[in-house]
Amino acid sequence: MKDVNVADEVTRAAVELFAAQGYANTSVQQIVEAAGVTKGAMYHYFESKDDLLFAIYDRMLSLQKSRLDEIIARGGPTDVVLHDVCVDVIETSIDFLPEGTVFFRSMHMLTAPRQQEVTRRRRAYHDEFSALIERGQSEGRYRTDIPRPVLIANFFSDVHYLSHWYSPEGPEDKSVVAEQLTDLFLSGIASSSGRSDG
Score class of each variant (00 low, 15 high):
Gln29Thr: 12
Ser175Gly: 05
Asp79Gln: 14
Val37Gln: 06
Leu184Ile: 06
Arg143Cys: 04
Arg148Gln: 09
Val150Ser: 12
Cys86Pro: 04
Phe103Met: 10
Gln116Trp: 02
Ala190Glu: 03
Arg141Leu: 03
Gly100Glu: 12
Gln29Gly: 11
Tyr23Gln: 13
Arg143Gly: 02
Arg74Trp: 03
Val85Glu: 01
Glu179Gly: 00
Val10Thr: 01
Tyr142Ser: 10
Met109Asn: 11
Gly40Glu: 07
Glu70Phe: 08
Ser62Glu: 04
Gly188Ser: 08
Ile189His: 01
Asn25Asp: 13
Val176Trp: 13
Ala124Cys: 00
Glu117Thr: 10
Asp58Gly: 07
Pro113Asn: 13
Ala55Asn: 03
Arg114Gly: 10
Arg67Ala: 09
Gly188Ile: 01
Pro98Glu: 14
His108Phe: 05
His160Asp: 11
Ser167Ala: 14
Asp3Ile: 10
Ala24Gly: 03
Arg141Glu: 00
Ala41Met: 12
Tyr125Met: 07
Phe129Gly: 01
Phe46Lys: 02
Arg59Trp: 00
Val6Trp: 07
Ser130Cys: 00
Val80Glu: 15
Arg122Trp: 02
Asp51Tyr: 07
Ser167Tyr: 09
Asp58Phe: 03
Arg105Asp: 12
Asn25Tyr: 14
Gly188Phe: 01
Lys39Phe: 14
Val159Ala: 08
Val177Trp: 05
Val4Asp: 13
Ser191Val: 01
Ser106Phe: 10
Val87Cys: 06
Gly40Lys: 04
Asp50Ser: 10
Lys2Ala: 10
Ser187Cys: 12
Leu97Gln: 07
Glu128Ile: 09
Val37Phe: 00
Asp173Lys: 11
Glu139Phe: 02
Ser196Thr: 15
Ile56Pro: 00
Glu91Tyr: 05
Arg120Leu: 14
Lys65Ile: 14
Ala20Pro: 13
Asn154Phe: 13
Leu97Pro: 00
Val87Asn: 02
Val85His: 03
Gly194Phe: 08
